[in-house]
Computed example of a mutant assay.
Amino acid sequence: MKSDYHIPVLYHETMEGLRINPEGIYVDCTFGGGGHSRGILEQLNENGKLFAFDQDADAQRNIPNDERVVFVPQNFRHLQRFLRLHKVTAVDGVLADLGVSSHQFDEGDRGFSTRFAGPLDMRMDRRQQISAADIIRTYTEQRLHKLFEQYGEVSNAKTLARQIVQQRNHLHVATIEQFKSLIAPVVKGNPNKYLAQVFQALRMEVNDEMGALQEMLQQVPAVLKPGGRVAIITFHSIEDRMVKNFFRQGSFDETPDNPLLPVVKEEVLKVITKKPITANDEELKRNSRSRSAKLRVAERV
């Protein structure tokens, strides 16, 4: 496994949260550079097993030569389906690190980073059809406004959407540079921060990250054994809210606490982390990308 591919965030906290059973079956939904997977394998004995999911073909280069590992080259939204294909009905732990890997940011031809002159792509799974450039070329102004506002928290999302729609017929948009020059007149504040927010929104839309997370979370109670644990690391407030709500109430709705209206619900998951775990000072110094990471852990009742 390549250690420089991606530095796993909240590594020790995640391993602690999963409370590894040496003979257990575990799923790493976001294999990437294999950092978290390595930690799980170190604690498993010869009877343990690890299913590693990753839709990015580049991640396959990091699969260890270990017969306990089964690599699944798929999006984690298909979690239950592929476990069943491998005759697995229940597992001891599920882990997902929802951050984009350092490798994806550092490969210019993937189109994830504003630093490179590459194609405006951003597909984690290159087998899928729609790229970031397709979204810029085809989405309506209203749809663009909504995605930049929700996923990027872009302050002038409406102006940005209008600029794109007004200019895209005159300007060809296939590369990062072309897109940056198209939106340059409406960039507000710190250009690097602004572009990072815009690119984040596009990436989340291209890969349907919210939809995939929702589908995966809904499958977790069914695939976890009683006492099994799920650990999810998020990097965005929307993701964190989804995880928090699902762990607490088994749904994604915001339900206000009202002592006069007792809610009777069957508890499927028990929240282990009352507040999300964040990186300590030492990790923040070592890895700036851990700054927005939040870890939440729950246990199957």
Rank of each mutant, 00 (worst) to 15 (best):
K225V: 12
P226Y: 08
P226R: 07
P226I: 11
G227Q: 03
G227P: 02
G228E: 08
G228K: 00
V230N: 04
A231I: 02
I232P: 03
I232C: 04
I233C: 04
I233S: 00
I233A: 04
I233P: 02
I233V: 15
I233L: 05
T234I: 05
T234G: 05
T234V: 05
H236W: 12
H236Y: 10
H236K: 03
S237V: 02
D240A: 05
D240S: 04
D240M: 08
R241E: 07
V243K: 13
V243T: 04
V243D: 00
K244Q: 07
N245F: 15
N245I: 05
N245V: 10
N245M: 03
F246W: 13
F246H: 13
F247P: 12
F247E: 01
R248I: 06
R248L: 15
R248M: 15
Q249V: 02
Q249W: 02
G250F: 06
G250I: 09
G250Q: 09
G250M: 07
G250W: 04
S251Q: 07
S251A: 05
F252T: 09
D253F: 13
E254F: 15
E254D: 00
E254Q: 01
E254T: 03
E254M: 00
P256L: 14
D257M: 04
D257Q: 03
N258C: 08
P259A: 07
P259I: 05
L260H: 06
L260M: 06
L260D: 04
L260C: 05
P262K: 14
P262L: 10
V263M: 12
V264S: 12
V264C: 13
V264D: 12
V264H: 09
K265P: 00
K265Y: 07
K265I: 11
K265H: 10
E267A: 13
E267C: 14
V268H: 04
V268N: 13
V268I: 15
L269N: 08
K270T: 14
K270S: 15
K270A: 15
V271D: 08
V271L: 15
T273W: 14
T273L: 12
T273F: 13
K274A: 13
P276F: 14
I277T: 06
T278M: 10
T278G: 06
T278N: 01
T278P: 00
A279V: 06
A279L: 05
A279G: 07
N280R: 01
N280V: 08
D281K: 09
E282L: 14
E282V: 00
E282D: 08
E282I: 06
E283Q: 03
E283A: 06
E283F: 13
E283L: 08
L284T: 00
R286I: 02
N287V: 06
S288P: 07
S288N: 05
S288A: 14
S288I: 08
S288K: 14
S288F: 02
R289T: 09
R289Q: 09
R289W: 10
S290Y: 05
R291Q: 11
